[in-house]
Amino acid sequence: MHAALMLDSLDGLSVGEALGQQFPVMGRSIPDILAGNLPAGQWDWTDDTEMACTLVAELGRHDGIDQDRLAARFAAQWEPRRDYGFATVGTLRQIRDGVHWRVAAAAAFGGQGSCGNGAAMRVAPLGAYYAGDPEKVVAEAVRSAQVTHLHTEGVAGAVAVALAAGQPAHARVTGTPLAPREFITAVIDRLGDGEMSQRVRRARALLGAPTHEAVQVLGNGSRVTAQDTVPFTLWVASTHLDDYPAAIATCLAADGDIDTTSAIVGGIVAAHTGRGSRPGRIGVPEAWVATREPLPSWVSTVRAQRRQKSGLGFGRIREWFVSDYPVF
């Protein structure tokens, strides 16, 4: 298990989401942003980041997903100002009112369960956490998704993103090169049959195509479904796996559900690049991290302590989560 990679992925997710949320109104072009010409003020994050932080805290404290506990924490942490989708609001409100999460999640969309992109948008840090153990990635991604998304395609989207984040994180640890086609194929190999698998195969076939063509075929999240969001994000991540700013810029240029596509892509790519730049990799710019709204205290505290005590093992990092993350 890799707490440091998980936290890097969370940085990439939260910065991407916050920038994507602000971009339509910030009055800056993509070249301006890439050149560091940022507007004054803070980039606030929304539901993508809040739920990802809760998921990270669950993993940090318990080493795995307990669905009852995670559902209760999602409901307790829900803040309407964070711009949650209407279906998620309905599910979390029911859970907060005492309805079991499985009943609440199953009731969405006339009893079909949600196939929205919400389970996928928050899960990249989980994939980084279990890097090198794809079977565990799949099992825990399914568990993390089901508490709000019981439609098979909503779950498949989460599995695809978690697998996509786990691969580059593992490649970073081992120093193994990861080619774009290999990256997507490894995800396809662990997806079951269904629309998600079919559309990810299309993403693989579009490697090397211009962005507008990828959007035309795969979507850009504007329908807010996992099927319309995840395949495009895998195409972007595989295309820009070593360059976080370029990956986020591609999401901005594609329009659609920009904050969600940027969150997913950011979480995947940052698991590979980390923060800052090094030979061959351009990670999350420190100026962007500084502009993003600070993450909740239990995340920032653990990061600071991990850096100060970098010689200690994961067990001590887990202790810090236990002490800093609110008990319920």
Rank of each mutant, 00 (worst) to 15 (best):
E79A: 15
T225I: 05
A169S: 13
P24N: 08
V289R: 09
Q216D: 13
S262H: 03
Q112K: 14
G16C: 02
P24V: 06
A205N: 10
I268M: 10
A162T: 11
E195L: 13
P285I: 15
V284H: 07
L5S: 03
V99A: 02
M51S: 00
L13R: 00
I95L: 00
Q42L: 12
R28N: 13
R306M: 15
A131D: 03
A18D: 03
R73D: 08
R81W: 14
F86Q: 13
V236Q: 02
P24H: 10
M121S: 09
Q21D: 14
I33N: 08
I268G: 03
L70H: 01
G41C: 12
V187P: 03
L252I: 11
V142T: 13
R69E: 10
I317T: 15
A108H: 05
L126G: 06
I264K: 04
P80W: 11
W288Y: 07
H272N: 14
A290P: 12
R275W: 08
N220D: 14
R204F: 00
L218P: 01
D257S: 06
V284M: 09
L59S: 04
V230C: 08
M26Y: 07
V161Q: 09
C251L: 14
A18W: 06
R318Q: 15
G27S: 15
Q94T: 11
A131H: 02
G267D: 02
Y325I: 07
G166D: 03
R61W: 09
T261W: 07
L7Q: 06
L178Y: 06
S238Q: 06
A171K: 03
V147H: 03
S144P: 15
G90S: 10
V25T: 12
T233L: 04
V142R: 15
A247N: 11
P296R: 01
D11S: 03
I268V: 13
A145M: 02
S222Y: 05
I184R: 00
A270N: 00
R122E: 08
D63T: 14
R316Q: 11
M121E: 01
V230S: 00
A249N: 05
G90D: 07
Y325L: 10
G274R: 05
F314R: 10
T239S: 07
Q216G: 09
A71Y: 02
R102G: 11
S114V: 09
A165F: 00
D11E: 11
V236W: 01
T91R: 02
A253N: 06
H100C: 09
I264A: 09
L295P: 02
P180K: 03
A246W: 02
L234Q: 00
L5A: 10
T49W: 05
I317H: 00
V215W: 01
G116L: 07
R190A: 06
Q198W: 14
R292M: 15
G90A: 11
V138W: 05
A105K: 04
G194S: 12
L312V: 10
T250G: 05
R143L: 15
E135Y: 06
Q305H: 03
G20R: 05
P177M: 08
G157E: 01
T152Q: 14
F23V: 14
V284P: 04
A263C: 10
P177G: 03
P180N: 07
A128M: 12
G157H: 06
E213G: 09
G194P: 11
